[in-house]
């Protein structure tokens, strides 16, 4: 936090503009160098693919702000999809999705209870959950994808339209707005920042800090459930390997957005920008006909650049400091 306090207002303004400037830069680069990038269909495609990642990343952001981390998302959406498809013939589509969503929220609750109240380390709990839930999903489905009975209701979440706009994009917009509202204007959101910055200080200030951590995991479970429901509807089946890298992808989004993993910082605007960068780059790689290997290498490069470049300015500042004779 000390760096925040010391930061010159101009630098603070610069970094705020930088958050929005980088995705714009990526957009213009894509428009210039990637053929067929700038069309309504393709841009809609970028947003639709990005919306699932964005919703899940909203959940990850809340957790990162309280100083935790969630690796279990990939398996949580898998379990959700399998449960939804199994329930669909008996309960009907709407209730089946509700059941699946309850499962994912329950996962968040379990994570939160273990982390906040049993004080187990977040990364270990959620890594364990990653395996347990994947095992459960595979066990329920027999290790094979289960096809859902095709019905327009089942596919609506993933490929429906409302007033010409794809449903996932609308849901992603709602998710971002609710995260923004939660973080900015509610007591829960404000106290997440304090809990993440200094847990003991939050306890001493009389905040129910453990409950706040638990809430962050439950809210993340909700966002993750929404992402999983859209994903399930999109593929129209229950798969134990639906999106195994979802958690890693959301952490990458947060890293690119400049949200630190040690808690206390992060905003909805940042997540949107980070997701847009990743979604546009992935789309560009596909349009340029490059293999998935290049996509991974590019992703590693972008994450590396996003975390290293801000540090480099620190290094430069320190060097200048040394050259001036280290007066302070």
């Amino acid at each position: 936090m000390t760096t925040l306090i010391k930061q010159h207002p101009a630098i603070a303004l610069g970094s705020r503009i930088g958050v929005i400037a980088v995705p714009l830069l990526v957009f213009f680069l894509c428009v210039l160098f990637v053929p067929r990038f700038l069309s309504v269909d393709n841009l809609q495609n970028v947003l639709r693919v990005g919306s699932i990642l964005l919703i899940a990343a909203c959940g990850q952001t809340g957790i990162l702000i309280v100083g935790g981390i969630d690796f279990s998302m990939g398996s949580a959406v898998a379990l959700l999809s399998v449960v939804t498809v199994i329930l669909a013939p008996e309960l009907g589509v709407a209730l089946a999705f509700t059941g699946g969503i309850c499962v994912a929220v329950l996962v968040g609750l379990c994570n939160g209870l273990l982390i906040a109240y049993l004080k187990l380390p977040a990364f270990l709990v959620t890594l364990g959950m990653l395996l347990v839930l994947h095992g459960l999903a595979s066990l329920l489905s027999g290790g094979m994808p289960l096809d859902a009975a095709p019905s327009p209701g089942f596919l609506w979440l993933g490929s429906g339209h409302v007033a010409g706009i794809p449903v996932p994009i609308i849901l992603a917009l709602l998710a971002v707005l609710s995260l923004h509202g939660l973080l900015r204007y509610t007591l829960v959101g404000r106290s997440w920042y304090l809990v993440g910055t200094n847990f003991n200080a939050a306890l001493n200030a009389g905040l129910p800090a453990r409950r706040m951590v638990l809430l962050a995991y439950i809210v993340a479970g909700l966002f993750c459930a929404l992402a999983g429901a859209i994903l399930t509807s999109r593929v129209g089946s229950g798969q134990p390997n639906l999106y195994p890298d979802l958690a890693f992808a959301t952490i990458a989004v947060c890293a690119i957005s400049g949200i630190p993993l040690n808690g206390g910082r992060g905003s909805a605007v940042q997540v949107v920008c980070g997701t847009l960068i990743i979604a546009m780059l992935n789309n560009a790689v596909v349009l340029l006909n490059l293999t998935s290997a290049w996509q991974q290498l590019l992703m590693a490069l972008v994450i590396g650049a996003a975390v290293v470049l801000p540090q480099l300015s620190n290094v430069r500042r320190r060097c200048v400091h040394l050259l001036r004779g280290n007066a302070q």
């Binding site: 981390i69 990364f123 890693f248 952490i251 990458a252 890293a255 993993l261 991974q296 290498l297 992703m299 590693a300 490069l301 994450i303 590396g304 975390v307």
Partner: peptide, 10 residues
């Protein structure tokens, strides 16, 4: 976590 995630993807 971020650094090793980066090198894992790489």
């Amino acid at each position: 976590i971020v650094a090793t995630l980066c090198s894992m993807i790489a």
